[in-house]
Design a protein around this nucleic acid. Sequence first.
DNA 1: GTTAGCACTCAATCGCGAGGAGTGCTAACA
DNA 2: TGTTAGCACTCCTCGCGATTGAGTGCTAAC
Lengths: 343, 343
Amino acid sequence: MQLDERKTKILQAVIRNYLETGEPVGSRTISKYTDLNLSSATIRNEMADLEEMGYILQPHTSAGRIPSDKGYRFYVDTMMEAREREVVEMKELLLERQDKMEQMLKQMAKVLATNTQYATMISAPQIHHNKLKFIQLSRVAQGQILAVVVGEGNVIKNNILSVTQELDDETLLKLNMLLNTHLNGLSMEEINLGMIAALKAKAGIHSDIVGEVLDAVAETIKADEDLEIYTSGTNNIFRYPELADQERASRLISTLEEKQQLTELVRETFSEEEGSGIQVYIGDETPVSGMKDCSVVTATYELGEGVKGTIGIIGPKRMDYDKVIGMVRNMQSQLEDLYRDDK
Amino acid sequence: MQLDERKTKILQAVIRNYLETGEPVGSRTISKYTDLNLSSATIRNEMADLEEMGYILQPHTSAGRIPSDKGYRFYVDTMMEAREREVVEMKELLLERQDKMEQMLKQMAKVLATNTQYATMISAPQIHHNKLKFIQLSRVAQGQILAVVVGEGNVIKNNILSVTQELDDETLLKLNMLLNTHLNGLSMEEINLGMIAALKAKAGIHSDIVGEVLDAVAETIKADEDLEIYTSGTNNIFRYPELADQERASRLISTLEEKQQLTELVRETFSEEEGSGIQVYIGDETPVSGMKDCSVVTATYELGEGVKGTIGIIGPKRMDYDKVIGMVRNMQSQLEDLYRDDK
DNA sequence: GTTAGCACTCAATCGCGAGGAGTGCTAACA
DNA sequence: TGTTAGCACTCCTCGCGATTGAGTGCTAAC
């Protein structure tokens, strides 16, 4: 059987209605709700077909129909077109941005959460494939060296390392020059063993310091592996009865708290290469088990090559996909514009 | 009426029993539970007294008694003695500590949460009254200067500032020396207008740069005003039915998510100067409205003068105060020891 | 092909009564 | 005078059956 135009309309009506109310929707409702001018009986026939085709389902025999995952998927696919709205408020909020990327991301998560009424997450740009821009060693105290590493996109990492051997200012200066001239513009992966050996050789008697510094650099980078993720609007899940029962809510909240699990989600979105960078996971499709009962909309934003992060919105399956996709796309371009202006 | 020894024993028995079960406790239970060898009738008389005195209350006429806030308060006060336990696991977890304060604090929050089964929060040390230890300016790109500010306790802050005027290496070096020689060891408050004017004068033609840098320093410090707070174990609240209903849970979770509100809690604990630095807020006593139905145990840890943070545990009123206070005290001394060793 | 009508299904809701935990009070006892 | 056994009473909890009502599938008529 094929989805003719009428079936499509009815399906959309069912889904849209369910999105609004969260209740199973019956044939009578559709009959009045749409402009099809069909009686409830006709709708019933069509709905029986749609159910057979797997787009909708009944929680129990004498209830209305609710969309199945397949139904949601259809809805999302047929609706994945551009949308421009709610730009204003965001622009405004972005104007009072801080230079601190972190603060800004937190604020973005919040804006998204209050606007969508869903839970949101946003990951800080990953430095992983990032290029080194600048390294600076300074002595802050006896035996303590401060190492500052700056990457493409001004991602800054600090590290304090203890050294056994005292360094005078001149040596420190030389080391700084050595490190910068040799490492600048390299990505983390390009700093391999041969490189390290060469550097150590050039450092002469301070080779062990170089070793320590490079370790610190590596550690600095690695510390970023379990990347920063900010969440907001967690409590929004209580707005949706189908997620708010104790068991589900508890699971979801701990999932959102465990950044480890969200990392999984971020990785997944990175791996899926697609035009717009927007992904929609419905129910079981999501890579994170704690979100089986939800839908997740993610977008990848890219600030420079290899420097990218993820925006995610987590809500009930009956989320307002249309709006959410619009918002997420918006946020994505905001972030990218912001970076370009900054540059 | 006075709390004689027998009443005290009965009150403690009631509270302890309620802590375990979460159910109102009746006279019969107490009669068997304690070693007082009194019949349930006698206990009933005593319980009636205790209720009249406000230590316990009945949810409804034919139910057992549960502790009132006053009852909890009494219990906590009579029990506020040292306790040493669960040191082992923490020690172990602390061994694999990172230099990154942030990572460590997050981990601590987690350890506390899994150990206590309550929600936990921990605030990063406040830099507010902190002394400057080191300032470093470096040029990272055309027109971009990286300012790194290190405070007592190795609290590091970065800031990238755009400058209109190009600086050569020598000038930068001079500026660095100037800033460090004049500002080191000063607290944020001590850098006043006169100071700034003097510095600008000495910087000569680069006075505007100095201005920008000091602005950046100020901003850097101010960004820390809404201080970092890490939470963990939020979903633990679902373990306690009296907190797990939708309304309460939602409120609590958003309170825990809104760091702003937790900041309030931190400030409160700072203002209450007390010997051990441990505070117990029961029910309405807490300064954060979202936690009216909970009890909150907080401890202040101090790493250096003016550099202090807060550990907090949020749970039901029937929390195991004994254990929690032990844990918190423990964590407090761990943190302080850790810092001393590090120094 | 569409629709009206009807019998049927089944979750949700309500009312009600039994059960039971716990109390307060009284009277008897040591 | 303090303690205790006994009893009537309260009131929450739980389970059960009846009721309700939304929604369906099917059939027959248009």
